[in-house]
C-alpha cells in the first residue's frame, strides 16, 4: 500500500520526549529497527495514526545510549532488545531488558558497523 513517505531526523536526546508526545496524540508504535552505519548506528522509529506513517531517523554514535521508550510504549521491548542484540545499541531504563539474551547467537552484535576511520 503505497503511501506518503515521511522521514524526519531526530537527535538521540529527543527520542523519549517525542515518543511521549506521539503517545499523547494517539499514535501507535509500528516498529523500531537499526541500520548499519560507519561509526554509528541509525535507529529508525516508526509510528502510525489513521494509516499515516511517520518515521524518525536517530543516529546513535558507538558508545552512546538512547533512553528506552518502553515506559511509554511497553511493546517496544521486543525491538529494543533486538536492536541491542544485533547492533549493540544500549537502551537506558528499559522496562524489560534481556541483557543481550534475546536472540541466541554465536556472535555478539553481528550487524554492528565498522568504526569510523580517523583521517
Amino acid at each position: 500500500m503505497t503511501e506518503e513517505q515521511i522521514f524526519e531526523d531526530l537527535s538521540p536526546a529527543d527520542v523519549y520526549r517525542t515518543a511521549e508526545a506521539l503517545r499523547a496524540d494517539g499514535y501507535r508504535m509500528v516498529q523500531i529497527c537499526g541500520v548499519t552505519r560507519e561509526g554509528s548506528t541509525e535507529v529508525l522509529y516508526s509510528f502510525d495514526r489513521d494509516h499515516r506513517l511517520v518515521n524518525y531517523r536517530v543516529d546513535v554514535p558507538f558508545g552512546t545510549s538512547v533512553r528506552s521508550i518502553t515506559p511509554v510504549y511497553w511493546a517496544a521491548f521486543v525491538y529494543e532488545n533486538e536492536v541491542h542484540d544485533l547492533f549493540g545499541v544500549e537502551f537506558e531504563d528499559s522496562k524489560l531488558d534481556y541483557k543481550g539474551n534475546f536472540f541466541r547467537m554465536s556472535a555478539k552484535t553481528p550487524w554492528k558497523g565498522p568504526e569510523k576511520e580517523v583521517s
Binding site: 509500528v30 516498529q31 529497527c33 541500520v35 529508525l44 516508526s46 511497553w74 511493546a75 521486543v78 525491538y79
Partner: peptide, 26 residues
C-alpha cells in the same frame, strides 16, 4: 512493515521486515 534503503548500487543497504507476530507478542 517493510523498509528498504538504497545506496546507489544493485544491492540494497538495508531491507527490514517487521512481521505481525513481532508486535503481537507483547
Amino acid at each position: 512493515f517493510y523498509y528498504v534503503q538504497g545506496n546507489g548500487t544493485k544491492n540494497l543497504g538495508r531491507a527490514r521486515v517487521r512481521t505481525p507476530t513481532n508486535i503481537n507478542i507483547p
